[in-house]
Design a binder for these strands. Structure first.
Lengths: 201, 201
DNA sequence: CTGTTTATTGTCCTTTAGTCCAATGGCGCA
DNA sequence: TGCGCCATTGGACTAAAGGACAATAAACAG
């Protein structure tokens, strides 16, 4: 039986982990790493990537979890040794599937990210007609670094107050950044912000 | 129950197909396509690709099978609409896993091909491409029909007032359904509801 | 040096969201 | 015919979100 260990800060956890794997251990750090043979690591900042690098040295299977699916982050995670890349709020069925595939020596990526990889690869391999991907695209690059930071946390489900605490600024400032992000991305509220960010990552 | 249809010439077939899916239909052409919801298509020449293109128009899941695994062919198959790419002599366990992943809205590629894709992509631009937003079934089944209707509209970015107008009920009732949906899905607000509903893609 | 952008915070105010404690009527089921 | 579940709504209330108007300070470009 596979022993799963979920490493994530206390404020970003999902009940679905335990639902998918009743015997799973959920902890904020890797203290109980020894008993685990499948580690789910929530990626948020560079430190988490560093930890991923460290873990990849072992023979344990590592699955990166993310707040927002993002192609570059996925690539980095897989390069750093992860065998899977999945949204942290994925439903138990998906989590189980990821575990299965990874346990079988496979790699797991959501279909959308996979498709991106396929299409991206089309450019470097001798390809026929690589259909350029487009759509209702929003340019997140027009946001300043602070606006983006706020937007990402908000898109991860944080409230303004939580974002403020996390970034060591006042709630008012959070609103300011958020408001200008709304303007730039032409969305009316945080809900739509999540939708466009989810559709363009 | 998923109905599998394997399309392959009589001289290139594998007994493992039937082993993996006892109720599967194996035929040399797509005559019996109507009853199937998962089509396994053996790729040999350009005609097969053409057929793949045609099939991709339907909502059926399509899995490309190959005689020899090849990165470029894999790419073409996935671009043409296939959700998986697997060797035609794969063992039943693998076939079942492929079917599972694909049924869940995922994409399947052997680990080796996957690694090639990942490494290939690593060298090119970090520019993200748009991804289509799709949704699969969640454990949303625990919601009543009304709760689900409200949840879906909310997850599409509608305000309570808009949902109320759309469903011809009062905003108060929208709140009631939404509140109980929150309880059942164990989310704290509409933002997390969106994340949960968008997570299983 | 000056104008622009970015980051930060403030107050005041309106609109939305979400919860608590109800109540009513319909529908299936034992 | 009660019991439970579902859909509906009310009122009252608290919290969260977002806009309007404005200010200060640092960084940066021309």
């Amino acid at each position: 039986m596979t022993q799963h260990l979920f490493i994530a800060p206390a404020d970003i956890q999902s009940p679905r982990w335990q639902q998918a794997f009743p015997s799973a251990v959920i902890a904020p750090d890797s203290a109980q790493i020894a008993e685990a043979d499948c580690v789910w690591l929530l990626l948020r900042d560079e430190n988490d990537f560093a930890q991923l690098q460290v873990l990849s040295g072992s023979d344990k299977k590592i699955i990166a979890m993310t707040l927002i699916e993002n192609a570059q982050q996925a690539r980095q995670a897989l390069e750093a040794g992860a065998s899977g890349y999945v949204h942290y709020l994925a439903v138990p069925q998906v989590l189980e599937q990821v575990a299965q595939v990874v346990a079988a020596g496979g790699m797991w990526l959501g279909a959308d990210l996979m498709r991106q990889l396929v299409l991206a690869t089309a450019r470097i391999l001798p390809a026929p007609v690589a259909k350029p991907v487009n759509g209702t695209k929003v340019d997140l690059s027009q946001l300043t670094s602070r606006e983006l930071a706020v937007a990402e946390l908000v898109a991860a489900g944080k409230t303004n107050k939580e974002v403020a605490r996390e970034l060591y600024i006042t709630e008012r400032t959070v609103k300011a950044h958020l408001g200008s992000a709304f303007d730039k991305l032409k969305v009316r509220d945080r809900l739509h912000l999540v939708l466009v960010m989810a559709a363009n990552s």
